[in-house]
Nucleic acid binder design. Structure first.
Length: 681
RNA sequence: GGGCGAGUAGCUCAAUCGGAUAGAGCACCGGCCUUCUAAGCCGGGGGUUGUGGGUUCGAUUCCCGCCUCGCCUACCA
């Protein structure tokens, strides 16, 4: 509603500026005034024009208002302050615009590909990975709600050093053969234990082992690590078999963990297929042809294929700062493989993966890459816009990939490549101590300490989820004495997940989250459960009142219809007094005592506006904030206006409709955040 | 050394493209459960927006200098 009216006002203002001053303004700046007494929409445009027109802003504002005339949906415009133009909505009409459920978006906005999660499959997921997956999954929901077709991908680096490290652990610390590893995986599964937790410890032990022993031993172990990596990359040997067993088993665990948070994927492209299907060779040719890559004959990168870094000044002679893509021994770096993969994402590589089914969700299948796949598979790749949810530390390599695409002439694709970057989740020193980690005096002074999978330092995702569910279950048990255990468990899980997802989403992407159990386990104030609680309260009103939100909204629509009829009749019979025919709905939304109600309706009408803001800035936090504010305004309304005891039937209808609209918007906003709305709390 | 990001209330964070009186939550203090659930509501104290300049009608926001912190800066992935 607000978005529509803003667009309408913008068009009217543009027309006035064109006609009166012969000015073409691209977009008129529109903002929300700090107080409802100053209207609902405002523009400071007169300030901008003051210099150009050599007039005081206040005078310009007045001229614009005079020239504006009536605009449908608005009751008046005022000049305020030093030259603001404040627009006042027709409140009853605006509310009636919010009542109908929004039509589903035309799914013609394009084909987006979102890559998120992408955890190395060699250990359990930790809280940093949760932030990634929750941000990515939420953004997928936003894009879909806005009308994009979205493919969700989770890139699996199953042949990298991290997997190699844990394989070294199995082979050389635990002396296990492939069949023994296979047996271990089966054994753990049978006992209901987590293989990714097992690997978490083994990975940390192996990392430590590399650094122990004599200098000679260290060198040997370093070589062992490298040899293991090469055996895995090459494939077709025992080492590679263990890598495949482990990475696949751990990957399954990651999918299970994420499913607890309602996070699903469509496709899992793996590094092994990018290697074996020779994506790089195809990309290498294109990179050479386009001149993005050149062979370095001099300097420190002599003998390598390199590319100029983004933003680098063109310099004469040797560019020692260039990014190495192919090493002098002929092997390709990570960025090189990533360029090839991204050419595939945009459908520019000329090669494709094979596809196999891997994991079944209730309503769809998740596919995984394969050298030779199944004949009938969905199509992936060839997107028009891509979003890579990757932490801020990787902005350099991401920029390199974009630079390469641009250099190859794919400027449109480069422009639609978004590094959806976010800051890491770290632990507060207090939290680290509570978890039993030994931390240095230096670290104790810091406000946060970076987690490290290599050191086994961090909070595992499943541990946190278990802990959250236990805490919410204890609380639910004290409140829901009449519900049975299964119902309580379901509620506890919904609240726990709501708390966790909201915790990760309420902070903007570029701020480091210093994790603390006290904050994460909080269910009061600006939290997911606070919003869920508002939903439950509204549902209770309808339950106690023996009616439904649908009936309430229909009731309001009927009320509006009757008023319109009455007003028409009045104008036909009484002529001049037509304008004076007053509307009850309008009365309910005006006056000092009703400002909170109007404020609630106004915010309920902002969904489309917030959604566009989130997508335009790749920032889900705005929606999280919106949902909280809506819940907060409802809580305020709830305490001031008692609905079920309202005696005036028309006003009761209106108050019920207010609750119904709020309910719909809260449930909708929570769903976009990936948070369920419980029936009871 | 270079690049990127950050510094806002005791703490954790917001603040739309440069706009009106810098806002929330937590913590703290004081009230409110015979009511549609107190996971809630109301009230209160709390700020030289790191610092010094500049740009202008207007700066938390943009520019320059300085201070502090984090990350990136491999022929690792």
């Amino acid at each position: 509603m607000v978005l529509e009216l803003e667009k309408r006002l913008g068009r009217s203002l543009r027309a006035v500026l064109k006609e009166k001053y012969d000015l073409e303004i691209g977009t008129i700046p529109l903002e929300t005034p700090p107080d409802l007494r100053l209207g609902e929409i405002a523009t400071p445009i007169a300030f901008e024009l003051a210099r150009k027109l050599r007039k005081a802003p206040k005078i310009i504002a007045q001229e614009i208002v005079t020239a504006l005339g009536p605009v449908p949906g608005f009751v008046r415009f005022e000049v305020a302050g030093a030259g603001y133009i404040n627009a006042y909505l027709d409140r009853a009409a605006a509310a009636l615009l919010v009542v109908p459920a929004g039509s589903p978006p035309a799914s013609e906005r394009g084909h987006a590909l979102v890559e998120h999660t992408s955890i190395n499959p060699n250990k359990a997921a930790h809280i940093g990975h949760l932030r990634n997956a929750i941000l990515g999954d939420t953004f997928v929901r936003l894009l879909r709600a806005a009308g994009y077709k979205v493919d969700v991908q989770n890139y699996i680096d199953n042949t990298g050093v991290q997997v190699a490290d844990v394989v070294v652990g199995f082979l050389h610390l635990e002396k296990k053969s492939p069949s023994e590893v296979r047996a271990l995986i089966a054994e753990l599964a049978r006992k209901g234990e987590r293989i990714d937790f097992y690997c978490w410890d083994l990975y940390a032990r192996t990392s430590q082992w590399y650094g122990e022993g004599t200098g000679e031993e260290k060198a040997e172990r370093k070589q062992l690590r490298l040899d293991t990596l090469h055996l895995i990359e090459h494939g077709g040997n025992d080492t590679a078999e263990i890598a495949d067993l482990i990475s696949t088993a751990v990957l399954r665990r990651h999918l299970e963990t994420m499913l607890r948070l309602d996070i699903e994927y469509d496709f899992l492209p793996r590094e092994s297929e990018i290697l074996h299907l020779k994506f790089w060779e195809a990309a290498f040719e294109k990179l050479k042809q386009s001149g993005v890559l050149y062979f370095e004959n001099e300097g420190k990168n002599k003998g390598c294929w390199v590319m100029t870094r983004p933003g680098a000044e063109t310099i004469e002679g040797t560019d020692d700062d260039a990014k190495v893509i192919v090493r002098s021994n002929g092997t390709v770096t990570y960025v090189g493989k990533d360029i090839a993969y991204h050419l595939w994402k945009f459908g520019l590589l000329g090669r494709d993966f094979g596809y196999k089914r891997f994991f079944t969700y209730p309503d769809h299948e998740c596919w995984i890459s394969a050298e030779s796949g199944e004949p009938n598979h969905p199509r992936f790749g060839g997107a028009t816009a891509i979003y890579n949810v990757i932490d801020a530390r990787q902005s350099d390599p991401q920029a390199n990939v974009i630079q390469a695409l641009r250099g190859m002439g794919y400027t449109d694709q480069a422009d639609h490549y978004t590094h959806f970057s976010y800051e890491m989740v770290a632990l507060t020193p207090r939290c680290a101590v509570d978890l039993g980690y030994d931390i240095s005096e230096e670290d104790k002074q810091k406000s946060y300490i970076e987690v490290s999978g290599r050191k086994g330092f961090g909070v595992k995702a499943d541990d946190l989820i278990d802990k959250l569910i236990a805490a919410t279950r204890a609380e639910v048990d004290t409140r829901q004495t009449s519900n049975d255990s299964a119902v309580r468990q379901k509620i506890a899980e919904q609240i726990a997940i709501g708390a966790l997802r909201y915790f990760m989403l309420k902070v903007t992407r570029n701020s480091v989250i210093a994790f603390d159990f006290k904050d994460a386990l909080s269910f009061e104030g600006e939290t997911g459960p606070y919003i869920q609680y508002a939903v439950v309260r509204i549902r209770n009103i309808f339950r106690k009142g023996s009616t439904t939100p649908e009936a309430a909204l229909a009731g309001l629509a009927k009320l509006a219809e009757q008023e319109q009829k009455a007003s028409q009749q009045a104008s036909e019979s009484a002529g001049l007094q037509a304008g004076a025919a007053h509307s009850a709905i309008s009365d309910y939304l005006t006056g000092e005592a009703n400002e909170d109600i109007w404020s609630l309706w106004l915010r309920a009408g902002r969904r489309a506006q917030i959604l566009e803001q989130c997508i335009g800035t790749s920032e889900p936090a705005y929606l999280a904030k919106h949902a909280f504010q809506l819940a907060q305004e409802f809580a305020n309304f709830y305490h001031r206006h008692h609905i079920l005891t309202e005696e005036d039937p028309a006003r009761k209808t209106f108050l019920l409709a207010t609750a119904a609209v709020t309910l719909r918007e809260l449930v909708g906003a929570l769903a976009l955040l990936g948070i369920e709305s419980p029936e009871a709390m």
